[in-house]
Amino acid sequence: MTKILYQQDTYLLTHTTRLLQVTLMDPKTVTVVVDETIFHPQGGGQPTDIGCIRSLKSGACMVVDMVKLNNATGLVEHRGKMKDDLILSEGEEVILEVDEPSRKLHARLHSAGHLIHHAIQALGLPLQKTKSYHFPDSPCIECEIIDPNFDKSPVGLSSIQLKIEDLCNKWIAEGHETSITLCQRKDMDDSRLSEKARSSEMVRFIGFNGIPNPRPCGGTHVKNVLDIGKFFIRKVASKGNAIKISYACPC
Rank of each mutant, 00 (worst) to 15 (best):
F232Y: 14
D99T: 14
D35S: 11
P27M: 11
I141P: 01
H118M: 08
N213C: 04
T178S: 12
Q121M: 08
G156Q: 09
D35H: 10
L157W: 07
V76E: 04
K235D: 07
T181V: 14
H110V: 02
I146K: 09
A242T: 13
N241W: 07
I164K: 00
C183R: 15
G74N: 03
P216L: 08
L5Q: 02
M25F: 15
D49Y: 06
D99P: 01
M188R: 03
R204K: 04
D190E: 15
G240W: 00
L109A: 03
F135L: 03
V94W: 06
C168E: 04
G44N: 07
K239N: 14
V236T: 02
V34Y: 03
V34W: 02
P148N: 11
A237F: 06
M1S: 12
L19Q: 06
S102W: 10
S194R: 09
F231A: 01
L109D: 00
T2Q: 14
G51L: 09
S199P: 01
S199E: 14
T10S: 09
S191C: 09
F208E: 00
C52I: 15
I211V: 07
P250T: 11
K81M: 11
I243V: 14
M25V: 15
A237D: 07
L19T: 04
S200E: 15
G43Y: 03
S102C: 13
C183F: 14
L127K: 03
P154F: 13
C249W: 00
N70S: 11
Y11I: 07
I120E: 01
K131W: 03
G218M: 06
